[in-house]
Amino acid sequence: MLESFRGGKVARWFKGRSMWLLHFCTGCGAIELPPSMTSRYDLERFGIIPMASPRQADVLLITGYLSVKTLKRVITTYEQMLDPKYVIGFGSCTINGGMYWDSYATINKLDYYLPVDVYISGCMPAPDAIFAAFLELREKIEKGEANGYKLYKIHYERYKANQDKVFKNRGIIEGED
């Protein structure tokens, strides 16, 4: 009975109602997070509060575009978080590059480097859209489908090869000297 409590339906029901965000403003979308936490929209009634240390947080919110210099630090932070952990991609820049699709410094598809559970589209998403995404993440957790952290361990070689391709190829167009 202890085994079924730890990994089973009751534990997942509790996990979905207590998701702590990590406090990391990675891009321009971070300006719509403080208004969601004030009393007009109030994220805390769903059990979501910001947390300063990655060792005690559950959800990593990638708010917007990622430059390559930030991607290194995001991966270090993601690997410091403890299981189970979830990633939410916030904004159009994580889906296909957004309006910086032809820039030499920002990545285009977040899914190549980190496993993503839920995407929010928009530029910039309003606080109502943030709520919809967190409720969808809660449904996924209750059904047992939010398995990004397990996929990261199973396919680790593929993720590491993609990350190294971006970190090592700095500025040299292939085929030129």
Partner: peptide
Amino acid sequence: PPMRKDFDSRKYSQITYDSEA
């Protein structure tokens, strides 16, 4: 240096960020 006119940013982005290793 990337701001020179003979550096093609679109081509670099397509090769590096649009496909997997």
